[in-house]
Write a protein that binds this DNA or RNA. Structure first.
Length: 313
DNA sequence: GGGGCGAGTATGGCGGTACT
DNA sequence: AGTACCGCCATACTCGCCCC
């Protein structure tokens, strides 16, 4: 498989994150997968995210359940690796889902599977992934207007082997739309909780380069595809009531998407290594006036993303 | 026999830790 | 501090099966 540096960004074939009409029907109130959506709706710690022809339910930054259509029908999968530290205490329901009853069997074991995942992470913490999902939860558009200026659309977005922790929109108030959610700006987000993750092959500078390469790919036409991909994700999530339709999303702003570095309980200025890395990012941003790079400081106890805690680089 | 599909598996990216 | 390795994620690839 090619490394990201070998990929032709002009021709890279991106399969958009989108569910089939059949999947949307099965998740609807009359479909056999609907109990999953119900469970997600009732538990703010769970989120459902749309992938390319399948979807995941995430808990604590890990995949609680993955649902994919196969020839036999819908297949549910729990990552058995989580049992490694905590040998099988849960009898998994049948992988094949053929009825609403089958789906209910899976939903019934969610609490037990969550205990297994918690047990796994007690031995092996996943601080940053957990922060990502907590940020997504704190800046959700599921239960009405988001508390801050951002709404998280998705987690772990990958494009041409480049990966970002979160995809968000930032509200864009105008005269005709004082609330600002109808034509928001697309945002690529990278979350950092530890100094060591700020440098090196997945550090701040490399992520800034990845962002710039995507935004500029094909003279901006690849970016238009990504906007289209997320317009579709928003529409599907509105239909699944995972994004509140009353926010009135219409389309994305044509403005260049923002790249946002979020530091959780981390002060980059207090760490000379991070400060050095930030300086590289700043220099990179200055030579590319079209890009828009910002940083934001959050704490574990206040993960609401606002303009006030954001600073231009 | 070849095209399409899909289950299983490999690979790469990234975070995290443990060891030097 | 550097690095080597592991775990988890998304996704790309492989190869066998089914159907024409």
């Amino acid at each position: 498989m090619p490394r990201k540096t070998d990929i032709d960004l002009l021709t890279y074939p991106k399969n958009p994150r989108r569910l089939s009409d059949n999947a949307m029907d099965e998740l609807s109130s009359v479909g056999m997968l609907h109990p999953i959506l119900d469970a997600v709706a009732q538990d703010p710690e769970l989120r459902l995210d749309i992938r390319d022809g399948y979807f995941n339910v995430y808990y604590g930054g890990g995949s609680l359940l993955r649902l994919q259509k196969s020839r036999q029908g819908w297949m549910a999968r729990f990552d058995e690796k989580y049992f490694r530290k905590m040998p099988h205490q849960v009898n998994l329901p049948s992988a094949t889902i053929a009825s609403e009853t089958d789906t209910r069997c899976w939903v019934k074991v969610f609490p037990a599977l969550i205990k297994v995942m918690d047990g796994f992470w007690a031995a092996k913490p996943n601080v940053e992934r957990r922060h990502c999902q907590e940020i997504a939860q704190a800046n959700s558009g599921r239960f009405g207007t988001p508390p801050g200026d951002y709404l998280i659309l998705d987690i772990e977005y990958q494009w041409a082997h480049r990966r970002f922790d979160l995809i968000a929109v930032r509200k864009n108030p105008r005269m005709a739309d004082p609330e600002g959610w109808s034509v928001p700006k697309l945002v690529f987000v990278e979350v950092k909780s530890k100094p060591a993750a700020c440098k090196g092959s997945a550090g701040l500078y490399v992520h800034a380069q990845d962002y710039a390469s995507i935004v500029g790919a094909g003279g901006g036409c690849r970016l238009n595809e990504i906007r289209g991909e997320y317009e579709s994700v928003i529409r599907q999530k509105e239909n699944l009531e995972l994004i509140d339709r009353r926010l009135g999303f219409e389309r994305f702003s044509v403005a260049t998407p923002e790249f946002l570095l979020i530091f959780v309980d981390l002060n980059p200025d207090a760490d000379s290594q991070i400060a050095k890395e930030m300086e590289k990012v700043r220099a990179f941003a200055q030579q590319l006036p079209s890009v828009s790079i910002h940083k934001m400081f959050l704490t574990k106890t206040d993960l609401v993303m606002t303009k006030n805690n954001r600073k231009t680089l």
